[in-house]
């Protein structure tokens, strides 16, 4: 019995000894490559996420005709709504149809090739121009221009930016997954915006609506109601929901 026990302890001592230097080696020498590879992984994924991914995500599409907003703006009397008008029933017409263009462009004006395309390809053939719309939202989003432009008296620029001063149409960048323009998420992939019109996501709507709602609330100077205020903090949708903030206001 004892003989065999000795043998076992001998064997284990022998085995332990050569492992010692190996462990030290790993402890000292491998911390370098581990950290390095961590950084490499970090950098590569950051490059993929911040640089390559946005490039892959969007496809570039050219508008059928290059349109000069500034030039047209000078020609019309009522600014944007001369072409982007409200219909008699109050609904917003959006992008003009051939009918509006044909008022002036029945025949080719000037020498630009875009002008020739407009007249020959679309107006003469009575085919609507397949404009790519930068601000197009999904069908489930209900947006009333009348409520914002007419009732709240907001300018077009607030959401659409200084497009009226542009001399040519920028490249339309289409999101390969969702199918919408890059302008909805914003040019900046991080989602940070400098101007109000840089993004058109739900939060951008919400930010403005919240502001308007709180301005309204402070203006009404209601007496503090502790219980209801607390309730509203815990359950923002409970109690009296702000009409402009309920989900179904926009999501029909």
């Amino acid at each position: 019995m004892s003989q065999s026990e000795d043998k076992v302890s001998e064997n284990s001592a022998e085995k332990k000894q050569p492992r010692q230097p190996g462990e030290n080696e790993q402890g000292n020498g491998s911390s370098g490559p581990i950290l390095l590879l961590f950084i490499v992984g970090l950098v590569i994924s950051l490059i993929i996420g911040w640089v390559i991914f946005p490039k892959l995500l969007y496809s570039q599409k050219k508008q059928p005709i290059d349109f000069n907003h500034e030039l047209h703006n000078q020609e019309v009397d009522e600014g944007c709504i001369s072409c982007h008008f409200f219909r008699e029933d109050g609904s917003f017409a959006g992008v003009p149809k051939n009918e509006q263009c044909a008022g002036c462009h029945e025949e080719v004006l000037g020498e630009s090739t875009d002008e020739a395309i407009l007249v020959e390809e679309y107006i003469a053939k009575d085919k609507e121009i397949p404009w790519l719309i930068y601000s197009k939202q999904p069908d489930c989003v209900f947006f009333s221009h009348a409520a914002h432009v007419k009732m709240a008296e907001m300018g077009c620029k607030t959401c659409h930016g200084p497009i009226g001063k542009s001399t040519s149409l920028k490249m339309y960048e289409e999101n390969r997954i969702s199918g919408y323009s890059r302008d909805i998420w914003g040019k900046n992939i991080s989602g940070i915006k400098k101007n109000e019109w840089d993004r058109m996501k739900m939060n951008d709507c919400a930010a403005c609506h919240k502001e308007a709602a709180s301005a309204k609330a402070s203006a009404s100077k209601r007496s503090p109601q502790l219980f209801f205020d607390l309730l509203a903090m815990v359950f923002p949708d409970a109690g009296k929901p702000q009409k402009t903030e309920a989900c179904f206001v926009c999501h029909k």
Binding site: V40, L42, V43, I48, L57, I177, G191
Partner: peptide, 29 residues
């Protein structure tokens, strides 16, 4: 370690968040 670095980098990049958003729109469209 490389993978963890990659995962940390990805999390710090807009990729997962943007993809998630686009996918949710895609499912409705």
């Amino acid at each position: 370690s490389f993978i963890i670095g990659g995962a940390a980098g990805t999390t710090l990049s807009p990729l997962p968040w943007k993809l998630m958003d686009d996918m949710s729109i895609w499912t409705q469209m």
